[in-house]
């Protein structure tokens, strides 16, 4: 018990422990404002550099292309941000969903197999969403009902999903064709493809939901101080369950987009997991309170997407991409933590 109490009251690593003191809070807010503006400035600077240096980067078509290439990652990163928001920022004891990448692979396989088995698009979509939500429910069951640490519960579920995907596909590429898949990649409206619109729609919806409704505010209360939220009468377990199920549903949506982009399912989708963790945690530097946010997640995904795209146009080897991402996250996080610190550990 005591360890649980300590765990929940310990300052999570994303919150500064500064909110104990009023003056500190104000100072921290100023600093976080500077960090946020600095991060946005960095994003603008990088894009401006590519715009000048890389021919074709600033093309409307290319920018839409960046969004299109970022959609799957963005949907998964939104999921991660929602789970982190609800569970709290402590990576080990707070919210995290390591099963997202494997869930993406499993759902893409489910859609492809269902589609090839002759089910119509609506049915295949329903099956895919059901699979994604079921994975989310299993996570929620382990975390909320059994009390397993999210890091561990979702790690085990990741293995189960990865294995289930292999069983479904026998580790092979399976192609699929359906009206829905060609609609997602082919159709366009106002110059943007349906993939772009899915990202735009999901982002607007989630920003409104998480940052503009009572539900979202309470979710952040649950993530910020679980005991206080419980004492205030919030049904903490319902909110936590909701985050994992929502994450599973978003992963299923991402899977349908991925199936459309790859014309089917192919092994290895789970590899996206680390990028998901990276972009979601990086989102804190784009947010006002240094917490994960949907808008911040979108910005960091586009940042990464723009970097990859710009590198391609500049003919920089793609082997640099991971390293640059790594340096980037270390840089932003170091700037943040150094400016928040005042001479202690």
């Amino acid at each position: 018990m005591s360890s649980n109490l300590i765990a929940e009251q310990a300052p999570a690593f994303l919150d500064s422990s500064a909110d104990l003191e009023d003056r500190e809070t104000r100072r921290a807010r100023h600093r976080s404002q500077i960090i946020r503006l600095g991060s946005i400035a960095a994003l603008v600077a990088v894009f401006a550099y590519f715009g000048v240096a890389a021919p074709g980067f600033a093309n409307l078509g290319n920018l839409a292309n960046i969004v299109e290439q970022s959609t799957v990652l963005a949907l998964l990163a939104f999921s991660m941000s929602i789970v982190v928001l609800g569970g709290g920022g402590d990576v080990i004891r707070g919210g995290i969903d390591l099963s997202l990448g494997a869930n993406l692979g499993l759902c893409a396989a489910a859609f492809t197999v269902a589609s090839n088995a002759g089910f119509s698009d609506p049915v295949a979509v329903a099956i895919t969403l059901a699979v994604g939500a079921a994975v989310g429910l299993v996570n929620a069951f382990a975390v909320v009902a059994l009390g397993v640490l999210p890091l561990l519960a979702t790690l085990a579920v990741m293995n189960i999903c990865g294995g289930a995907e292999l069983v479904l596909t026998q580790n092979t590429v399976i192609s699929a064709n359906s009206p829905l898949l060609s609609y997602i990649t082919g159709a366009s409206w106002l110059g943007l493809s349906m993939t772009d619109w899915i990202l735009v729609g999901a982002a607007i919806l989630l920003i409104a939901l998480v940052h503009g409704t009572r539900w979202g505010l309470r979710l952040q209360a649950v993530g910020g101080q679980r005991q206080a939220a419980r004492a205030a009468g919030l049904r903490v377990s319902a909110y936590l369950t909701g985050t994992y199920v929502a994450a599973g549903l978003l992963a299923a949506l991402a899977a349908i987009v991925q199936a459309a982009r790859l014309s089917g399912s192919s092994p290895g989708s789970g590899d996206i997991l680390l990028s998901v963790v990276l972009t979601s945690l990086m989102s804190v530097v784009f947010s006002r309170r240094l917490l994960p946010s949907i808008g911040g997640t979108l910005l960091s995904v586009l940042f990464i997407g723009g970097l990859i795209n710009g590198f391609q146009l500049l003919n920089v080897s793609s082997y640099w991409v991971n390293g640059v991402q790594g340096v980037l996250i270390l840089f932003v996080v170091a700037v943040r933590s150094l400016s928040l610190r005042r001479g202690s550990v």
Binding site: V277, L278, L281, N322, G326, V333, S337, L338, V345
Partner: peptide, 26 residues
């Protein structure tokens, strides 16, 4: 990264993981 730059272990080692992958690929 953890002691001098004050980065949380999860993020610091995640960053190193990404850099290490690039180094090996290059």
């Amino acid at each position: 990264l953890i002691t001098v730059f004050g980065i949380s272990p999860f993020l610091a080692t995640l960053g190193v993981l990404f850099i290490g992958e690039s180094v090996q690929q290059l």
